[in-house]
Design a protein around this nucleic acid. Structure first.
Lengths: 159, 159
DNA sequence: GTAAAGAGGACTAAAATGGTCCTATATGGC
DNA sequence: GCCATATAGGACCATTTTAGTCCTCTTTAC
């Protein structure tokens, strides 16, 4: 369903918590309590975020995690990539991907373009946006297809 | 990785095949041969597409599948929804979704907006687009964030 | 009647995911 | 130096999801 994994979801919630109080280090235990998730799970998530460079960690007593850069400079793409790896809709979205069906496929290029569009969209959403409690007006809500594409009736809107 | 399932991928390839020759019925065997995938798998995919109304089927001898409407009226959203169910990035993207963490979450609304933006984007991509063999110029390639959003450095571009 | 086709569902195998736990290492305070 | 507090880094298992196959039934053209 084009869904984020639970861990990515947790990551977003945790990062938003940190972003709302960016000037001090946060421990896994503290965040687990605030977010109401089990400590081991939160710990794992934090480790992944640190490993991919979105958080900086300090070990030992009085340790914890801080953002490695401003919330406005951390994108949704970054979060997703940190937990789930490279974003791409299909196997062949990646440069080295070989599906062996390229000749009979005929849609690979176009899916890649769609992937790219989604990446671009997610690059435009920052942690600062996500952490906002006030309703966020995303520009991307524009009905893109009506701007430049001719057709697309858009039936089956019960998604 | 925000990835489509393999079956959705197959569905797109199969639908594109049909879209390129929309005036006659196509059997599962024929499509399996053309797409170079095992017959049972292609059959299953076709059944799902038919069940969700994107294909119409005729049984019996000389039977097969035809598009239920024009390729320009079948969207990427439709394809994905047919195979994977409703599109949504998080559990709580759905109306009835209850994650029990709503109070401590604080990002649900914003993720929903992002989900909506992706849906809109996918609504703008049609089967006609996907089936085009010539490079498709998607309007959505515009760097959306630079149009209206201030920040987003977009590091980690190795996606 | 027979052959060709889809409908529907049961079933299995494999892979991804979520979650926990253990040991090692770093840091600060006493 | 020692101890308490943290993270680092894996190993590990349970569960769920996904992919793929197969079987039986129904429909239809000839």
């Amino acid at each position: 369903m084009l869904k984020l994994s639970k861990l990515t979801d947790y990551a977003a919630v945790i990062m938003a918590q940190i972003a709302r109080d960016p000037d001090q280090a946060h421990t896994a235990s503290e965040l687990a309590a605030r977010v109401k998730l089990p400590h081991p799970t939160v710990g794992k998530t934090l480790k992944m975020l640190a490993k991919s460079g979105l958080l900086e960690s300090r070990r030992g007593s009085h340790g914890g995690y801080v953002l490695s850069r401003s919330p406005a400079d951390i994108t949704a793409s970054d979060l997703i990539a940190a937990i789930e790896g490279p974003i791409g809709m299909t196997e062949c979205s990646h440069a080295d991907g070989e599906c062996g069906l390229l000749d009979s496929c005929g849609v690979a290029d176009n899916w890649q373009r769609v992937s790219q569009a989604i990446r671009t969209l997610l690059d435009g959403v920052t942690l600062a946006h996500l952490a906002q409690s006030s309703p966020l007006k995303l520009p991307v809500q524009l009905p893109i297809q009506s701007v430049t594409l001719p057709t697309a009736s858009g039936a089956l809107r019960e998604h």
